[in-house]
Amino acid sequence: MVDVLRVAGLCKSFGVIRVADDLDFKLALGECLGVIGPNGAGKSSVLNLIVGLIRADAGSISLDGRDITHVPAHRRARLGIGRAFQIPQPFPHLTAYENVLVAATYGGGLHGSAAADWAMDVLGRTSLAVKADRIAGALPLIDRKSLEFAKALASKPRLILLDEIAAGLTEPEVERLIEIIAGVKADHAMIWIEHIPHALRAVADRILVLNFGRKVLEGPPGEVMDSRTVKEIYMGLTADDAA
C-alpha cells in the first residue's frame, strides 16, 4: 500500500535558522502522527512546507505516491491536503456555511447542491450546523477553531494537518475537539501539532519530536512522552545533570 504522505530528506533554512534538517517520515491512511517540540523547533514550518506555503531547499514530499515538492499550494489543497491553522484563519465576512462552501467548491471540487450538501454535512459533524448562517468573524474561539477544522475537512483531503488546534480552549472544549478529530481519523492521514499531552495520547498513533528542525525521536505516544530525551528538551534536564 502506498503511503498517503512520504517526506524524504526535507531541508529548509532561513539564513542560519534551520527549520527542517534532513527530515524523513511517512504516514498511512487512518494514521495520526503527533508532532511535539519546543517553540521554534520548526513544527509549523514543516506544515508550511507540506502545504506549499514555503519552498523546500532540498528533499521531496509526495502525496499518494505523487511527487508534490514543486506543486503550488492551491493545487496541493485540491490534490488532498487540508490544513487547520494555529491562529484560526476564517473568511471573516462570510458565514460559517460559506466558509466551508469555499473549501467544498475549490478544494473538494464539488458544485451546486453536491457542494451545499457536503458543506452542511461537514458543519453537522463539527457541531456548527446551528451556526451555519452566522458571520464567521463574530464566532467565539471554540467555533472558529471548529470552523478551521471544518474547512480542512470540507476540502475532501487525504491528509489533514492540524496546528495547535486545541490550544487556548477550556478542558471540555478540548474534549469536544478530540471527539470530532477522532471521528474522522479512520478515513484520513493526519498530522497533529499539539502541546496538550493527553489530547495527543488520545488520538496519535506515533509521536515525532522535533528540535531545531531535526527529528529527535519517533515512536508510540506513551514511550515518547516518558522518554528522557523529551524531558531533556522540555525541562532542560541535561543542564541540571551537568551542574
Binding site: 458565514t95 463539527t126 451555519a132
Partner: peptide
C-alpha cells in the same frame, strides 16, 4: 448564500 436545511448528520462530538 443561505445554508440549506441541515441534513440529519449527528455531530461527532
Amino acid at each position: 448564500r443561505t445554508a440549506p436545511t441541515a441534513p440529519d448528520v449527528p455531530p461527532l462530538a
